[in-house]
């Protein structure tokens, strides 16, 4: 955790953009420059600067955005629910399609289902996500008109439901506003399916290899000899045993979606943390970039810790 902060700190310091110049401007006098230099604490030793930086992050202060002069932390709080909503839906799709697909592919090894799962995964690994996003937007929105276009909701539905969680689907449900819900759903479905496909590719492959390992072990034979139905053997015994490994995989892919959604968010003009970081990047707003990076990194680490905890909970041997 400390190391993570250290890296963002170093990146922030080694960058060739002079932070003082960007505040006072090119034509500032030497005195103004020195004053600003002291004001942001650049005259102190690096270790002190680092300590200040850590303290700021702990207290939730990522500095002020150079672009709109608002605190970065507030901006992040505003955009994060959008990403969370998208990544959660994507992961749900990935889990509910990917796990059964992986199990069936393992049970019917070599069958056409297995081949299809294999091709799906291979294509998923090789396809540039931003390109697939563009093409699906072109087909389903541009040509067929089945789904809503870029953005989270249509222009008529903006700010209608009261904001509770910041996730529009949840908010409109809480408000029982079905029009907004339907519109938001039509906007989120395409990017969510896209992200879901990528996590599906990964989850189904991993499920398949875990299942193959279980199915070849002796207790499965015992269960079959005992006369258990094939369904009970596969879905209860074998799947029950890979639960722990699956949780790690799912947590990893969830974290991956929170990160990998950078490109998807840009294609679909989704106002989440990914597009926030990128916009900040393109306008050289370093405070916002570093703040966003730290938050994403923190989420990553937290998910890892969380999956470790679940691991301990589900696996009696790890206690």
């Amino acid at each position: 955790m400390l190391g993570l902060l250290f890296i963002t700190f170093i990146i922030g310091r080694v960058m060739p953009v002079d932070p003082v110049l960007s505040i006072v401007g090119e034509s500032a006098s030497k005195e103004t420059y020195d004053a600003a230099y002291k004001a942001i604490g650049l005259d102190k030793p690096l270790i002190v600067q680092f300590a200040t930086y850590i303290w700021d992050v702990i207290t939730g202060d990522f500095g002020v955005s150079l672009l709109n002069a608002r605190p970065v932390a507030d901006d992040i709080k505003r955009v994060f629910p959008a990403t969370l909503e998208l990544a959660t839906l994507g992961t749900l799709i990935g889990v509910f399609v990917g796990v059964p697909l992986g199990v069936i592919a393992a049970v019917k090894r070599g069958s056409w289902i297995d081949q299809i799962a294999r091709v799906l995964a291979l294509v998923g690994y090789s396809m540039p996500i931003f390109w697939l996003g563009l093409v699906s937007l072109l087909i389903f929105y541009g040509i067929l008109g089945w789904v809503g276009g870029p953005g989270r909701v249509g222009i008529f539905y903006v700010d209608i439901v009261p904001e509770v969680t910041g996730m529009i689907l949840v908010d409109s449900l809480l408000d029982r506003n079905w029009d907004v819900f339907r519109d938001a759903l039509s906007h989120i479905i395409l990017p969510a399916l896209l992200l879901g496909y990528y996590s599906l590719a990964y989850i189904s492959r991993m499920t398949r290899s875990f299942m193959l390992e279980q199915l070849s072990s002796e207790y499965i034979t015992t269960a079959r000899v005992k006369g258990l139905s094939e369904r009970a053997v596969i879905w209860r015994h074998a799947l029950g045993n890979i639960k722990v490994q699956l949780i790690t995989v799912i947590a990893l892919s969830y974290a991956g979606l929170l990160e990998g959604s950078v490109l998807t968010e840009i294609i679909f003009a989704w106002p989440g943390i990914g597009s926030y970081i990128t916009t900040a990047l393109l306008s050289a707003d370093m405070n916002a970039v570093m703040g966003g990076t730290v938050v994403v990194g923190l989420v990553f680490v937290c998910l890892n810790i969380f999956s470790d905890l679940l691991y301990k909970y589900f696996d009696p041997r790890a206690k």
């Binding site: 890296i7 990146i11 974290a255 991956g256 570093m290 890892n304």
Partner: peptide, 11 residues
């Protein structure tokens, strides 16, 4: 521990 694309972006 760092997400790859975000780290690359920052770099």
């Amino acid at each position: 521990a760092f997400p790859r694309l975000v780290l690359a972006l920052a770099f």
